[in-house]
């Protein structure tokens, strides 16, 4: 476990003198790339080079969130061989908020493990797509879900670019969306790191304010260019995420989607949303105009026909 608050970071951060100028240049560039970048909440760095695939985080999450007994016990590593539909690796599901998957990139002589859970996006697609506003992003950065208002349309699952939310299809009465909540009610709210972070024996997970965690990630890459590829996944992807990843191999090879772009998902919908007020204001006038035009023609015709019709009716 490694918890990083602002003061701690400053201590370690000051060690690297060049860092300040480096970051000074980087920030305005981000600000131009996407709006709504808060820089306020907390975040977690997942250092994939340190993860050993012990599944302690999975077990801790299960305990913390009172999830059902897993199908395969947490100390059974054969689970890494399981494949689901389409030859895909395991994913989050009903009762499983985080999973660790194993990859075998050819440039490494050892396997690489990747922990995966809700990334707590800065501009969450799940949140913006939900028509009853079931999601909230807390100031601490957690993306929370309110099962009391959820209708179960599952639009959030369509929208989440990381395929995170799962739905308890098996429940007939009150199926809900299930996903990692960054341990908000039990820990994050009180400034404590999430259970999975605390449980990690190799310090692969680092918790702190997102800004600091990001600086820390970049610093690690800078210090060990021989280990890491120069990319912090989640810094900019879909508008930035609270959970960040650094990796020794190309992210594409270990199941990360590298085509998501830097725009928050909501930006793709804006072109449509912009037409709504237009239609609402222009249409009535336009069609009322059409109506008057058409009926003037009609009126003329009526004048001609009226006489004849009256005769035939009497």
């Amino acid at each position: 476990m490694k918890s990083l608050n602002r003061r701690n970071f400053l201590k370690s951060g000051l060690a690297g003198g060049a860092l300040a100028t480096f970051l000074g240049r980087e920030k305005p560039a981000q600000a131009r790339e996407f709006s709504g970048y808060t820089n306020k909440g907390t975040g977690v760095l997942v250092d994939l080079s340190r993860c050993v695939g012990c599944r302690s985080c999975e077990a801790a999450c299960n305990r913390e969130q009172n999830l059902p007994e897993p199908d395969v016990p947490f100390d059974d590593f054969s689970i890494f061989d399981t494949e689901r539909h389409g030859g895909l690796k395991r994913r989050t599901s009903e009762g499983v908020f985080t999973v660790v998957n194993r990859y075998n990139p050819e440039e490494l002589d050892h396997p690489l493990f990747r922990k995966f859970q809700c990334n707590h996006c800065e501009e969450p697609a799940c949140l913006t797509s939900c028509f009853v506003n079931a999601y909230t992003k807390t100031p601490e950065g957690a993306v929370m879900y309110n099962p009391k208002v959820c209708v179960g349309c599952r639009n959030c699952m369509i929208a989440c670019p990381f395929y995170v939310p799962a739905y308890s299809y098996s429940k007939p009465l009150n199926p809900i969306v299930e996903k990692c909540i960054m341990c908000y009610p039990t820990r994050l709210k009180f400034g404590k790191p999430p259970a999975c972070v605390e449980a990690c024996p190799t310090e692969a997970l680092t918790f702190g304010s997102r800004v600091n965690v990001l600086k820390f990630a970049k610093e690690r890459i800078r210090q060990h260019p021989e280990i890491f590829v120069d990319h912090v996944y989640g810094e900019k992807e879909v508008g930035g995420t609270a959970w960040l990843y650094i990796s020794p191999v190309d992210f594409k090879k270990i199941g990360f989607d590298m085509n998501l772009g830097h725009q928050p998902i909501i930006n793709y919908v804006k072109s449509f949303l912009a037409t709504v007020p237009m239609v609402l204001t222009i249409w009535p006038a336009l069609f009322a105009g059409f109506y008057r035009l058409a009926n003037r023609k009609d009126g003329l015709k009526k004048d001609n026909n009226e006489g004849a019709r009256e005769e035939s009716q009497s």
Partner: peptide, 19 residues
């Protein structure tokens, strides 16, 4: 999932930014 809540977007909780 919870059809009886169909009217929620009308009266209980609004997500007006959602399509």
């Amino acid at each position: 999932g919870q059809p009886w809540r169909l009217v929620y977007p009308m009266i209980v909780s609004f997500g007006p930014a959602a399509v």
